[in-house]
Amino acid sequence: MELKHKRVLVTGGSSGIGFAIAEAMAASGARIVIVGRGETRLSEAAAKLSAGGNKVDFVAGDVTVDIDRRCILSEAVARLGGLDILVNNAGAVRAGRLELISEADIRAMIEVDLVAPILFVREALPHLRKSGESLVVNIASAAALTGVPFYGTYAAAKAGLSRFGEALRRELKGEGVHVMTVYPVATDTPMMASSKAGADLGFGREPAEAVGKAVVEGIEANAIEVIRGGEARAKAIVLNRENPLALDERFMSMKAALEEATRDHRAF
Results as ranks from 00 to 15, higher is better:
Ile72Glu: 01
Asn240Ser: 14
Glu44Asp: 15
Gly165Asn: 01
Asp105Lys: 02
Gly38Ser: 15
Ala92Val: 05
Glu166Arg: 14
Ser131Leu: 09
Glu23Gln: 15
Ala236Trp: 08
Arg97His: 10
Leu119Thr: 07
Ala210Cys: 08
Arg37Asn: 10
Val93Ser: 07
Ala167Trp: 00
Ile85Leu: 10
Ala51Arg: 11
Ala193Thr: 00
Lys196Asn: 13
Glu259Trp: 04
Asn138Gly: 05
Glu99Thr: 11
Ala30Leu: 06
Glu217Ile: 06
Arg170Pro: 00
Gly229Lys: 04
Gly198Asp: 15
Lys173Thr: 09
Lys55Met: 11
Lys235Ser: 09
Ala104Ser: 12
Val56Cys: 08
Ile139Ala: 02
Ile219Lys: 00
Arg163Pro: 01
Glu171His: 07
Ser134Asn: 00
Arg228Ile: 01
Glu111His: 08
Val77Cys: 07
Ser50Asn: 06
His178Thr: 08
Ala51Ile: 04
Phe120Pro: 06
Ile237Cys: 11
Ile21Pro: 04
Leu201Arg: 03
Val136Met: 07
Gly202Val: 04
Phe203Asn: 10
Val10His: 09
Arg266Ile: 13
Ala197Ile: 04
Arg37Leu: 03
Lys55Val: 15
Ala124Arg: 11
Ala186Gly: 12
Phe268Glu: 13
Gly212Tyr: 00
Gly132Arg: 11
Val112His: 03
Val112Pro: 08
Ala124Asn: 11
Ala232Val: 07
Val148Trp: 11
Ala236Pro: 02
Met1Leu: 10
Val215Pro: 02
Gly132Ile: 06
Arg163Asn: 08
Arg228Leu: 15
Gly212Pro: 01
Glu75Ala: 13
Leu239Met: 14
Ser14Gly: 09
Arg163Glu: 03
Ala90Ser: 14
Val211His: 05
Asp248Trp: 12
Thr40Cys: 03
Asp248Ile: 08
Leu135Thr: 01
Lys173Ser: 14
Gly198Arg: 12
Ile32Asp: 10
Phe19Gln: 05
Asp188Phe: 02
Arg228Gln: 11
Met192Trp: 01
His178Phe: 01
Glu206His: 06
Glu23Met: 05
Ala26Thr: 07
Met109Tyr: 03
Val112Leu: 03
Gly160Val: 09
Leu83Thr: 00
Arg163Cys: 07
Asp105Val: 05
Ala234Asn: 10
Ala221Ile: 08
Met109Gly: 06
Leu161Trp: 03
Leu125Arg: 15
Arg107Leu: 14
Val211Arg: 04
Asn240Trp: 05
Leu201Thr: 06
Gly147Lys: 13
Leu9Trp: 10
Gly96Lys: 04
